[in-house]
Every structure is written in structure tokens, then in C-alpha cells.
Design a protein around this nucleic acid. Structure first.
Lengths: 210, 210
DNA sequence: TAGATTGTTAATCGATTAACAATC
DNA sequence: TAGATTGTTAATCGATTAACAATC
């Protein structure tokens, strides 16, 4: 893998391209082009080629890209063929929804455990998985070799939960609580606030006077 | 409101700042600084000041920012004090989770309707709201004056649903289906793919060799 | 050869950061 | 005045776009 610093937006777009390529592959199409990929993924052909260029050469000049080969190449780059073990912390509505969301499994993410602190939830089953007690977090995540923790607890609990995750040695956190988590630099943290998306939409509507 | 083109990342950060300011306000603190805001929101003080500068002057040199005034100013900029009417399309796990998510309500987004095409779901209640039949979409959204449609249907249904939303005259769509929706340019569309966040995390772990 | 499309370079655009005068 | 912090400008950094030689 090249070591040139790769923009994060490039990785985001690669995931979109890969989804589209899988579709194409399944439809039986053999060849595609940067123009076609751009059209369907809302990018530009120059952007698509540039994104690929960070990682090597995958096409044939004058011809285009072999769909199967390109899909394999991109999948490998973004680690799609690996199996990542995921733990969800918080068995509320959103936690349950993420657990049930098949989209994660399709992309190699396997939710192996879900935790909650509420005794009335611990022991119940969601989508075939038993809710574990948060106090057993370290024991269970070690056993299940968890790679990524998904935090879906109320805002005021999030940092404490984050600290616990860090202490357990897990190196990646996806946080849906509306809080900016602080963590050591060797831990990958992604803070996603769902309200923000609505706010950007509404801001844009305000500006455009819609 | 100034018309200089404002970066979207600035709007995203403003929503984060506003959340932190509300916290500060509720804790009774009166004065804050760009340094403090930056620290807690994972930004830099120059960034914070620059973000504010797009919209005016909100602080006092040598002193800092009045928490209450700054919170009000930012809230107005991003339209936080408005009431936005939201419709959710898709009464599955994620749809239900978004409906139950109080974070939206706190930020001025009121979910007035939830739709599904599945007859076994139509008429049932989720979180006190009756699931409506998707065929009544236009009638109900007109009556409820819906501003924003949230699409939470399977990927293969998303574009058709998007077309229906556009036809109804709604000007903003938040799409959680893993598909890039196409829509006229006068409709604000935001495509959010939850798997992408996991993929970026796993990619970063691969690169760092964690 | 003519037409098509890649990979790559250079030009452009835009966002972040550093630095500092203005101000309290 | 000395210390602090803003608002703003200029410098830097990084990403996108345009253009085109290389190639089939």
C-alpha cells in the first residue's frame, strides 16, 4: 500500500464506488469507465481517476475498467473482505436499529455483542443477540476480539463509556452520542451526530429561501 | 445574512459549537473564548474565530464571548429556533429509532408523520405516532406542511421514494439508504451511509496497522 | 487511422493556520 | 500599563478540476 497521504474524502468516495461496482458486477456488466462511475455516484470523471491513482493503476487506456478486477482492487484497499468484529454499547432504539441493519454485515462488519447498563434490558434478546451487562465489557470484548466499538448511549454517559472502551484496548470508536469524544491519538474516533445532517439541510433551505 | 459563500464544514462546526454553548449556558457560565470552544469541540481557536467571522462579530476583543449572546446568534444563523416539520419514510428499525431519537426534537425538528408501504405496519403505532400508508404521502405531507423527508427504506426502493418526495414539492431530503439519490438541483439532498463510517474507521486501522 | 479513455501534470480553487494590529 | 483575546489579513496547505500525452 502506498504511503502518500490519502484524503479522507477519497476513502469515503471509494466506499461509494465499491457499492456501485458490486451492483454492476451483479448485473453482469464487464467494463465500465470513470465517466460512468462518476455519473452514478455524483462525482466527476477526473475525481474518480484521481481517487484511484492514489493506489495504483486499475484501468486500460482507451478502454476503461474491468468491473470485477476494479471491484476486487477497491475492496482490498478499503478492507471490505476482512471480517471486523463490532460491539454496540447502548441497547436503545438506535442501538437495536444498528444491530438489525443488515448493511453492516454485507460490508464485513459483524456485530458480536451489544451492551447496556439498564438491568431491565440486560439478558433480553435483540435480533437474536443477548444484551450483555456493561460491567462485563472487558471480558466479553476480549473473548470476541472486538475491533470497533459503536457508542449509542445518552450524551452525558458517552465520555465515560468512551474511556472504558479505550481502557479495554479497542482502537476504533464510532460515536453517535452528540458529544465530541476525547481519546488518545492512537485510538481512531469518529463522532457522528445525526441531527447535524438535518441542521445542514435546514440551513441550506434558509439560505436559499425555500 | 451575509452572502459570501460559506463552507459547509463551517456550518457543521457551528452546530457543534452551539451544542457546547447550550451546555455552558445551562451550567451558568457567562463568558467563554475561542480557545475554550476549540478545546472542547476538537477544533482550533483560529478556526472558531474564522467560522464566526463569516457571519459577523460576536465577541469583545481582550475579553471573549458572552455565552448567552453567542448561543443566540449561532442558533439564529443555523435556524435552530425554527420549527421544522419532518416526515420519515420507512417504519423499520432505523425509522423507528430516528422517530424515538429525542435529539431531533431538541434541535427544532418535529417528526409529524411516518410512512410505510407494508400493510402489516400501516396503522400500528410507533412512539405514539401512527404509521401512515405511503400512498397517502402527498395528502398528509401537504396537511402537515412537511419541510424535510427522511428516507429510511431499502436501497432498491430509495430512488422511487425520492422521486415521490420531489413530486410532492418537498425541498429537502435526508437519505439513509446506501444509494446516491438523484434529484433536481432545487432540492437539497443529503446522502448518509452509516456503513461508510465503519469503513473509514477500518481503513484507518488497516493503514495504521492496528 | 480515428475515437475513446486512462493516468498524470499543472492550474485553480478553497479551506486552514499563523500572525498580529485592534481592543478591552 | 500589562495581559488577554478578538477579528482579519496573508501565508500555507490541500483538494478539485482542466488539460493532454499515452495508450488501446
Amino acid at each position: 500500500m502506498k504511503t502518500a497521504k490519502i484524503p479522507e474524502v477519497t476513502i469515503m468516495r471509494l466506499t461509494t464506488y465499491s457499492r456501485y461496482l458490486l451492483q454492476l458486477k451483479e448485473s453482469g456488466k464487464k467494463i465500465t469507465s470513470s465517466r460512468e462511475i462518476a455519473e452514478i455516484t455524483g462525482s466527476t470523471s477526473a475525481q474518480v481517476r484521481k481517487d484511484f491513482a492514489y493506489f495504483g493503476e486499475f484501468g486500460v487506456r482507451g478502454v476503461g475498467y474491468d468491473v470485477d478486477k476494479l471491484y476486487e482492487a477497491i475492496s482490498n484497499i478499503i478492507g471490505l473482505h476482512r471480517n471486523w468484529q463490532v460491539a454496540i454499547i447502548g441497547a436503545g432504539h438506535l442501538g437495536g436499529a444498528l444491530l438489525a441493519y443488515s448493511g453492516f454485515g454485507d460490508r464485513g462488519f459483524h456485530t458480536a455483542a451489544i451492551f447496556d447498563a439498564d438491568p431491565s434490558k440486560v439478558g433480553t434478546e435483540i435480533d437474536g443477540l443477548k444484551v450483555a451487562d456493561i460491567t462485563d465489557f472487558e471480558k466479553i470484548t476480549a473473548k470476541e476480539k472486538i475491533d470497533i466499538a459503536v457508542i449509542v448511549v445518552p450524551a452525558d454517559k458517552a465520555q465515560k463509556v468512551g474511556d472504558m472502551v479505550v481502557a479495554s484496548g479497542i482502537k476504533a470508536i464510532l460515536n453517535f452520542a452528540p458529544v465530541v469524544l476525547s481519546a488518545p491519538t492512537d485510538v481512531e474516533v469518529r463522532n457522528v451526530d445525526l441531527s447535524t445532517y438535518l441542521e445542514i439541510l435546514s440551513y441550506n433551505m434558509l439560505v436559499k429561501g425555500l
